[in-house]
Design a protein around this nucleic acid. Structure first.
Lengths: 306, 306
DNA sequence: CGTACATTATTGTCCTGGACAAGGGTATTC
DNA sequence: GAATACCCTTGTCCAGGACAATAATGTACG
């Protein structure tokens, strides 16, 4: 029927592009109708066959949309122009902190020495302490890796390796803390559709040393089950993580629904890249757009009269 | 536009059902056309609104299809009948081994004591050793949890908690082994679309004690990147994991494509529930339909003349 | 009696092209 | 300068048709 993952990268069918670029089939067809891009060739059955170049440009567009640009504005640009825009956006980086560290880690990544990478991360973690490692180093490293990936300087598998190794480092440090009781109890998870779990681990790594007790459900928990889990585990806080790619609207709706279904005394925190783009205020939901806000939010919660 | 995660679980729109049941929009519409089920009501815009009952039945159908049944045969059944079929299927269980342990873990799960669950798993692991724990206990536990979930005895969030806790236990034991060099080097990952990573951890937990060096890329690596990673890291074996839900065809095509793109001296292993349903033989691909076959495959690989 | 092959049934994915609502952007008013 | 109304952009949904790939079944042959 469909050779979903193509032989060599020659052409991809619409399902494969949906996966690779993160754009629904409907959107791919609609863009073709409206903007004339992408304009895939057709196979003998009249089915769309996307070229590798089209997929690369689609990925670049998706990435720019995830930071707020609209498709109509950028879809005419060439791949180079889009990458330049991304670079331009990067210049005012929030963490001009440690480009040396970034370069070092990126070099280890591209040299494919998993062991050395693991050691380097563990080393950084030990020297800097959890707080600095997560809030500063990891935060800027994640951006550096994401940008390098988008510019084509980093392969997907190298990014995957990075993610795995960071998660191992974070899990190790989390496990190093005693896991008994703690206050507050925090439930960590993401909404359905959100596959990125690193944010959860980063938050957990910040909260556990402060004496909080974290219960993670991993990614993609339906809202109704978040509610039930919060009640069953008698948590005081429910913390959600959203990556840039998550649809803003879905996040807003979901948070409102969750807030409605939870008893008022259970706090709802929303963090991650996406929360920087949220316009309207969500009553009863604490937005934590920056990791450094996590501990502040915890302090504020503890200061509340109980 | 679309309230994707509904207020209280009253009705879901087609996108939400796609997520919740794991059936594409096209399939949902096609079934309605062909079989008359599901027959969602329509809102004022004529858009489908699925009831909670329909979604429950859809999930049951999906689960049965994942073990080989065809929709036409089962779509007429009631939810109870479908659940009975699932129970019937379970009777000839492969591991009549330790129902006591299963009951204990399930009880801990439904009592929502994360700490006790963690302890129980760690305890089992220590007492039984990695081999027995992974091959027997986890294997039958996974089935018990999956079945309990399908029968509605276990909530989604309880299943999520189980998965998280098991992964923590596995990662801990994997980390306990020295991670330096080792032979062979094994690359672990899954194809795009396959989100379940527990199989990878289970395999890693079996291989690492045997002196193999495992490099995991996590889930969902595009085939082209698996190839590049295998070459970059100079591995001897590429091991893929497939859960039941993965489309057989996509697995077969992908494995054939991967085999074609890799040099012959790099072995390709495919494991997981799905590989039990694979009919045709895939030349150059070692099928490991059962976890207990993992160590056999490793022994066979080591016996090969190099 | 089993195995290889051909035929039919079942099932999923893709196609076109139309409709519409929600959110962002812009102009107007106070 | 802030609030409101309007338009434009954009994504998702719908219907119904087509077809290819799998599974199931039947048939011929050793």
């Amino acid at each position: 029927m469909t050779p979903p993952t193509d032989t060599a990268g020659l052409t991809l069918n619409i399902s494969a592009v949906e996966r690779e670029a993160g754009l629904s089939k409907d959107v791919l067809r609609m863009w073709e109708r409206r903007y004339g891009f992408p304009k895939p060739s057709r196979d003998e059955n009249g089915e769309r066959q996307y070229s590798a170049g089209e997929v690369a440009k689609l990925r670049a567009i998706k990435r720019l949309m995830d930071v707020g640009l609209r498709p109509g504005k950028i879809i005419r640009g060439t791949l180079d122009e889009l990458n330049a825009m991304a670079d331009g956006r990067i210049v005012p980086r929030r963490e001009p902190a440690a480009p040396a560290v970034e370069r070092e880690i990126l070099a280890l990544l591209t040299s494919h020495d998993a062991q050395a990478l693991q050691n380097a991360l563990a080393n950084l973690l030990m020297r800097q302490g959890v707080l600095k490692f997560v809030q500063e180093t990891l935060s800027s490293l994640n951006h550096a890796v994401g940008d390098a990936w988008m510019r084509g300087e980093l392969a997907v598998f190298e990014e995957h390796l990075y993610t795995e190794q960071v998660q191992i480092a974070l899990r190790t440090v989390i496990n190093a803390f005693p896991r008994q009781s703690g206050v507050p109890k925090v439930l960590l998870t993401t909404f359905p559709g959100e596959q990125h779990g690193m944010g959860l681990l980063m938050v957990e790594a910040l909260l556990v040393p402060e004496g909080a007790q974290c219960i993670s459900l991993g990614v993609q928990t339906p809202i109704e089950d978040i509610r039930r889990a919060a009640l069953a585990h008698e948590v005081e806080i429910v913390a959600l993580s959203f990556s840039t790619a998550f649809p803003v609207r879905q996040a807003g709706d979901g948070l409102a629904a969750l807030r409605r279904q939870l008893p008022p005394k259970i706090a709802v925190w929303a963090g991650g890249e996406l929360t920087r783009r949220v316009r309207k205020t969500l009553p009863g939901v604490t937005l934590v757009p920056d990791l450094s806000g996590t501990l502040g939010a915890l302090k504020a919660w503890r200061a509340l009269p109980k």
